[in-house]
Design a protein around this nucleic acid. Structure first.
Lengths: 160, 160
DNA sequence: AAGATAAATGAATAAATATGCAAAAAACAA
DNA sequence: TTGTTTTTTGCATATTTATTCATTTATCTT
């Protein structure tokens, strides 16, 4: 199961290169040692929210959704946000994230700015964030979503 | 040659409705008295810059490019009492209201002060308010209530 | 206005993308 | 662990979208 490692790579490739088709993306992935089929790509792109739009030069290109975690969030650096998160706990369909004291608000803003569909909103205290999922979003979808926003998150927390 | 009249109509339809395929757009156009083939649509959409992206709900939808006419100047005269409110989302029978950073508390106080029966209470973070309805209050009643407190609210938010 | 040139369009088809289904792989529970 | 359930994946194929080519329609030019 290499989906978890594949998605971030796909996002990165789309962000950095001009990808015009699944076939092209497939080649780029292979060059990075990841191989899958067009069908899988189609599903991955759908999950990421990436779409194909005219590139204005007579062709087409894939783009990441607005405020994707990759579309550089001014003022926030992934590597700085990540280590402040201590713990993630499910509670009544909601998600409670604990951070270092005083860091909850910043982390929450970071999460909000990704404008992920799965997340209805967040509320931050001093060291705790409540993440409220939209109706119909499963617990697992929510975790996958968080993993997209902050790659390596769960991995890191497990390590603690 | 009706391209000149067709393009604006296509833009408008895409801006206002959720179009998921050429076939669907074709039907909408026909309903407006414009008829053409899928091939023409494909070319039109390319020229407009419209692309097909995942809608986050398991399907796809067409979107206009960033600075397209619809995302243009929001009429100033339409600004409401609390232009700090960005978004309202239903979640698990609760209501999540997102505001500009730092404005949640003020907005929440404003809502509290109306002492509406429908609202049991509110919790405000920095940019998010959780509105908790009384037991027995339907989702629809809650929205109607909010609309009473802040006339034109939903209308404004739809306009994004 | 007539002829020439360019733009627009549809029909057919090519190219690209999405999905049903079955199998395999992971995650989970006891 | 072992059995159970969920998720992921590829294959084959359906669906959707883009393009080629021929034709028509509009736009110039003189």
């Amino acid at each position: 199961m290499q989906k978890t490692k594949r998605l971030p790579v796909i996002e990165k490739i789309i962000a950095e290169e001009n990808i015009s088709s699944h076939a092209m993306l497939l080649r780029r992935l292979k060059a990075k040692g990841i191989s899958c089929t067009q069908a899988t790509l189609s599903r991955d792109l759908k999950q990421i929210g990436a779409g194909r739009v005219p590139d204005g030069k007579g062709g087409y290109k894939y783009t990441l959704p607005e405020n994707s975690s990759n579309s550089a969030q001014p003022g926030y650096n992934k590597l700085q946000v990540l280590p402040v998160i201590l713990d993630i706990v499910d509670a009544k369909g909601l998600l409670v994230i604990r951070t270092l004291p005083g860091n909850a608000n910043n982390a929450a803003i970071y999460i909000d700015n990704t404008s992920r569909y799965e997340i209805a909103g967040t509320i931050a205290g001093d060291d705790t964030i409540l993440v409220i999922p939209r109706d119909g979003i499963t617990n697992h979808q929510l975790h996958t979503c968080l993993e997209l926003i902050l790659p390596g998150l769960h991995e890191q927390i497990k390590r603690k």
